[in-house]
Write a protein that binds this DNA or RNA. Structure first.
Lengths: 194, 194
DNA sequence: CCCCGTCGTTCCATAAACGGAACGTTTCGT
DNA sequence: ACGAAACGTTCCGTTTATGGAACGACGGGG
């Protein structure tokens, strides 16, 4: 499905498959001591729906998810956010250790422009290049910890804690971590609209 | 603006309705310069599906949402974040100054330094001064929308959309909004520790 | 022991979300 | 000016998510 040429940072929103969502939902229900039947009745959904949802054999509708999470009193995000403690699989450190993690903090829509604010983490040793974005897009990186080179390929700039780097991202650009420390940074993407 | 120890991303995922999700999805698509047809093709969903989804006339399936947001490169959460200017979660750390509204997005604790990332909103016409902070504290302001003067009193600098201003805040400093537009910005506070 | 209420799963007809095709419109390049 | 391509919307047959009902399993009380 995603086999196209799109290259994007690995979004750590805990995106999982239907089975994971089902497990999380069941855990949330059982924490509250609710039976499946009772939660289904309160949320106004069928028992079959909830049963299949928790088993991971159904592909729920957004309204169904809203109904259930609303009754559980949790935001929809709770179904996709990993509970603390099992954030990463212990037996697959390679994938987590070598990919950039980006979490979308905010999206700001304006009449003429949109901003996306990410918190990103580059593990030590990371080097990644990104293809050009549409014209006019700019990136604004504020470093919190660690040091890296970032910017357009060929004119990378060094940025350490507290530093701020910006560049037009309609050309190939990338990042390379310097030193043995992970880099934490805030990345602001600016998308002007015609 | 106090530094409470709560490390909690104030991610609005309010209870939006289908029309809101559709609007947000359309905005995310258009800021990338993608046509509806192309996004549908890349994401592997029907054009009718995407059209109805953006119009708010459909009740999408979780797999459909994953396909589309995955292709857009945003977490599912991006569809549920409120547009700026709306109220935030009731228990999120929101601080109201005279007229400034600041929301703590993130706290980063390091061995030697602490960062606090805020999203702030200065209503049009706002002018406010802040007393000095402890020595070594710096402020880093990234403007999202609107224009303002910010920095130490006596050497205010102008900053418009996309601009970045920083200053040492161990002296009296302040902000003054220019023009009739509200200012949205990201404010990073850096607290070095001995 | 038996009854009865509740548990979670499975079966089923209905409603609706889905993808493909056709449509009218707009935007190009020739 | 014309034709071709791409745009977003609408129509339509197929697929599938849904809620109600029926099911067997379990457990407590009379």
């Amino acid at each position: 499905m995603d086999s196209s040429a799109t290259n994007r940072p690995a979004m750590d929103d805990g995106t999982a498959d239907l089975a994971d969502v089902g497990r999380r939902l069941r855990a949330l229900r059982e924490e509250r001591g609710l039976s499946l039947s009772e939660l289904a009745r309160r949320a106004g959904v069928g028992k079959a729906t909830l049963s299949g949802l928790e088993a991971g054999t159904r592909n729920p509708t957004l309204e169904t998810l809203w109904a259930v999470t609303g009754e559980l009193g949790v935001p929809l995000t709770a179904l996709f956010t990993r509970p603390p403690g099992q954030s990463t699989e212990p037996d697959s450190p390679v994938f987590h250790g070598e990919s950039v993690e980006a979490t979308l903090l905010r999206v700001f829509d304006d009449e003429t422009v949109t901003y996306e604010l990410y918190q990103v983490r580059f593990p030590a040793g990371t080097a990644q290049t990104s293809p050009p974005h549409p014209p006019g897009v700019t990136e604004h990186l504020t470093v919190f910890a660690g040091t890296l080179l970032a910017g357009p390929i060929g004119s990378l700039r060094e940025a350490g804690p507290g530093d701020y780097v910006t560049w037009r991202s309609d050309v190939p650009h990338g990042y390379r971590v310097i030193g043995g420390q992970d880099v934490h940074a805030s990345l602001l993407l600016r998308y002007p609209r015609r």
